[in-house]
Simulated scan of single mutants.
Amino acid sequence: MDIAAEPCVQVDGSPKCCFFKFSPKITFTNVVRAHLWVYLRPVLHTSTVYLQILRLKPVTEKGSRHSRIRSLKIDLNSRNGRWQSIDFKHVLQNWFKQPHANWGIEINAFDMNGNDLAITSPGNGEKGLQPFLEVKVAETNKRTRRNLGLDCDEHSTESRCCRYPLTVDFEAFGWDWIIAPKRYKANYCSGQCEYMFMQKYPHTHLVHHANARGSAGPCCTPTKMSPINMLYFNDKQQIINGQIPGMVVDRCGCS
């Protein structure tokens, strides 16, 4: 399961970014992958940028208020700005294990002239460019015994209506504007709807056998579908986090 977490920006505080909130349900899952995405402002000429991610500590704690999490040296030559990702799995795992240690982070990306190119609190024309976390957590096993339908695989000899696994790979399509998920389990339905379905769909069954023009018997089709969360770039290079309905086949049946 892929999720996105946007920061709670403290406009009047220091620093302005970033503190990420997580639901208790997510903190009990296993983190498979986590990346922090930061947008760097455009530069006119190639510039060396030092990107720093600093962990914040309580104000009452003695010593420095920060400790370094990540430090990257980047040669930036984009006149349109660009998104930079930072591996954040280890940090997130620690936050989930010790929620009290999550006091937020500070992000900066200084060039050789001391200009901070990291957008942490979007200004005019910078909507959708705030930092965010892309997180993939392990799927939880959902157990239910009611009306599941049949599940098959590519080696199955089942001829009845069945749900088959299918993984959609956006990268294989060349859809590089999708950030996450890069691939997901879509599934599909296939198989025959035999005589046993006459009791459930008697009119459809009888019309089919009466050879009415254009008639058809029960078809194997999705009877339950679920959405997926998707992160993608719009035409302005802004990040959109949305839920796309009807993307996963959960159950197949005859109708």
Results as ranks from 00 to 15, higher is better:
1 M>F: 15
1 M>P: 14
4 A>N: 14
4 A>L: 14
5 A>L: 14
8 C>V: 14
9 V>M: 07
11 V>D: 14
12 D>P: 15
13 G>P: 14
13 G>F: 12
16 K>A: 10
16 K>H: 15
20 F>C: 09
24 P>W: 02
27 T>F: 03
28 F>G: 15
29 T>I: 06
29 T>F: 04
31 V>E: 02
32 V>A: 15
32 V>M: 13
34 A>V: 02
37 W>T: 10
37 W>H: 15
37 W>C: 01
38 V>S: 02
38 V>E: 04
41 R>D: 07
43 V>R: 11
47 S>R: 02
47 S>A: 13
54 L>G: 00
54 L>I: 14
55 R>C: 07
56 L>C: 03
56 L>E: 05
66 H>L: 08
66 H>A: 07
66 H>K: 09
69 I>A: 10
70 R>L: 00
71 S>I: 04
71 S>M: 04
72 L>I: 03
75 D>H: 05
76 L>R: 06
77 N>A: 08
80 N>T: 12
81 G>A: 01
86 I>S: 01
86 I>V: 11
88 F>G: 01
92 L>V: 01
93 Q>F: 10
93 Q>K: 14
95 W>K: 00
95 W>V: 03
96 F>V: 05
96 F>A: 00
98 Q>R: 06
98 Q>A: 08
98 Q>V: 07
100 H>L: 12
102 N>S: 12
102 N>D: 04
104 G>M: 02
106 E>W: 02
106 E>N: 11
108 N>H: 03
108 N>F: 00
110 F>Q: 07
111 D>K: 05
111 D>N: 09
112 M>P: 00
112 M>W: 09
114 G>L: 06
114 G>I: 14
116 D>C: 13
116 D>Q: 00
117 L>T: 03
117 L>G: 02
118 A>N: 06
119 I>Y: 08
121 S>F: 13
123 G>M: 04
127 K>F: 09
128 G>I: 08
129 L>N: 04
131 P>G: 11
133 L>K: 04
138 A>K: 02
138 A>S: 09
138 A>I: 02
141 N>F: 08
148 L>C: 08
152 C>D: 04
152 C>W: 00
155 H>A: 00
155 H>E: 00
157 T>F: 05
158 E>R: 10
159 S>D: 01
160 R>P: 12
160 R>D: 05
164 Y>I: 13
165 P>V: 06
167 T>Q: 06
167 T>S: 11
170 F>I: 02
171 E>Q: 10
172 A>Y: 08
175 W>K: 00
176 D>R: 09
177 W>T: 14
181 P>F: 02
182 K>W: 12
185 K>Q: 12
187 N>A: 10
188 Y>T: 08
190 S>A: 11
192 Q>L: 01
193 C>N: 08
195 Y>C: 01
196 M>C: 12
198 M>P: 13
199 Q>L: 15
200 K>P: 01
202 P>E: 06
207 V>S: 12
211 N>L: 13
213 R>F: 12
213 R>I: 15
214 G>N: 07
215 S>F: 11
215 S>D: 14
215 S>A: 14
216 A>D: 03
216 A>H: 15
218 P>Y: 06
218 P>A: 13
219 C>F: 03
223 T>R: 07
223 T>P: 04
224 K>I: 12
224 K>V: 13
229 N>H: 15
232 Y>F: 15
232 Y>D: 10
232 Y>S: 13
233 F>W: 12
236 K>I: 09
236 K>E: 12
239 I>D: 01
240 I>M: 10
249 V>Y: 01
249 V>L: 10
253 G>D: 05
254 C>R: 03
255 S>D: 05
